[in-house]
Write a protein that binds this DNA or RNA. Structure first.
Lengths: 251, 251
DNA sequence: GAGTGGTCTAGACCACATC
DNA sequence: ATGTGGTCTAGACCACTCA
């Protein structure tokens, strides 16, 4: 059987050395461009045809790489308009773990109870990937629906990345935190990992939530990451266990 | 600009009438073949090239349709071997919502406490899509780890589909239910929807779990569906809230 | 109308599994 | 050796968005 003489070059489907496919390499390169800020969040990336030309591959190969990054949540495609770098999670609301009456889809009001800079514990510093003294911004935040407190949050953000939030007047804080991360600190939240457990609040926590001491609560421990995979937030959220309601699908 | 004369026919990318793409139509057809049993669970479906020939489309179009069904969990592809119809969920273990000490990854032992045929309530019949008198098989089942009861389940299965389980000697029941559905009733569980809430057990339930009356519990309400989208199981599971532990990712 | 992503074709070669 | 899915090419046309 004769082989076809392809021009300009008959490249193998995979890198012979590493065994990594070409579209996977493309995806890796484009991921780097987002992480390094060459393609900022919200901006449009070059058209498929341009990318194909730049990387010297066929259109279909570029599309395969793009599909990977779309599945990861890093890119978003809009027919007729272009391909855009994701702005990251906007809310990732803790409210999805709860169901409070007469409050479906509503954004709860936020009150910052406390804002201090502290040294993270060794464990926290390890999770955040920062070295001692591991300076952090610590927030205590109460979230309310129709005037009633529903969630109490304890948030740890590494400094100096979140320095702008240290000075920002508490009055000008928004109800949603992640858009503020982006607006004031240029930080995008790409992914959040939540661990739910059952537990009781301490006396102060119960009081802040308007609950009896030792009232059963659900505790959500969150770790949030940026597109580089770096942990950029540690958060503990407490809410009334009787309001707990979560829906999970398996397939 | 001249158009290329493609043979044998220049079909449009979409059905002009419906606006549905060709690969979506292909996927719909193949989905039907699985639902109707023409392609039974676990069997290999025809090769890509055969499908392309049968449907009169290019290979890439077939691949696009297959990718859809793989994403749905209906098909599984194995390089070099072929494409197979999924056997469905094997476990979908309730244990993923809990963390009992010294028991990670272990399959809990199952004991059937009760097996009766009952009439479903109107609500249950509606969910199961069956008409009155809505005969069902009702199971009460205790699941234990290292001899200690951990989960109490109340399961409702529509008759006559699950008739074989009505007669099967309780001794020959397996620890996992879904493989039994398939083995004895030919029913595949494609998808399960779980709703988690907080609540207290009644006296009998607490006793069965070896807990104090009113001990805090997590309640899991499950609806399981086959590939045709029909609900084929209603289940309520109770477990100690202190053992509750769930991990959720947002991206 | 120009530019974007979405769909589709008709091939080719590569890597893997099985006999 | 044969057959499978996985990767890749170099085109074409379609549907959508926006200036």
């Amino acid at each position: 059987m004769k082989t076809v003489d392809r021009s300009p070059a008959a490249l193998p489907a995979r890198e012979p050395e590493t065994g990594v496919s070409r579209y996977a390499l493309l995806a890796r390169e484009m991921r780097q461009r987002v992480v390094k800020g060459l393609w900022p969040a919200g901006s449009a990336i070059p058209a498929e045809s341009e990318l194909a030309q730049e990387f010297g591959v066929a259109l279909g190969t570029v599309r395969q790489a793009l599909a990977l990054l779309v599945a990861e949540g890093m890119l978003e495609r809009v027919q007729g308009r272009g391909t855009f770098v994701s702005q990251g999670l906007s809310g990732a609301s803790m409210l999805r773990f709860f169901r409070f009456r007469d409050a479906t889809g509503e954004v709860p009001q936020s009150t910052i109870l406390e804002r201090r800079s502290v040294n993270a514990t060794a464990e926290q510093a390890g999770l955040l990937g920062i070295a001692p003294p591991a300076r952090c911004l610590r927030l205590k935040r109460l979230r309310s629906l129709q005037g009633s407190p529903v969630l109490l949050e304890d948030i740890l953000l590494p400094l100096p990345d979140f320095e702008p939030l240290q000075r920002l007047p508490l009055k000008s804080w928004d109800d949603l935190l992640y858009p503020m991360f982006w607006k004031h600190c240029g930080i995008t939240v790409a992914r959040a990992q939540d661990e739910l457990t059952f537990g009781a609040p301490d006396a102060a926590q119960a009081a802040a939530l308007g609950l009896q001491p030792r009232h059963p609560c659900i505790r959500v421990e969150r770790r949030a990451y940026d597109f580089a995979g770096r942990c950029i937030e540690l958060r503990t959220t407490l809410g009334d266990a009787h309001a707990f309601h979560y829906s999970a699908e398996t397939r």
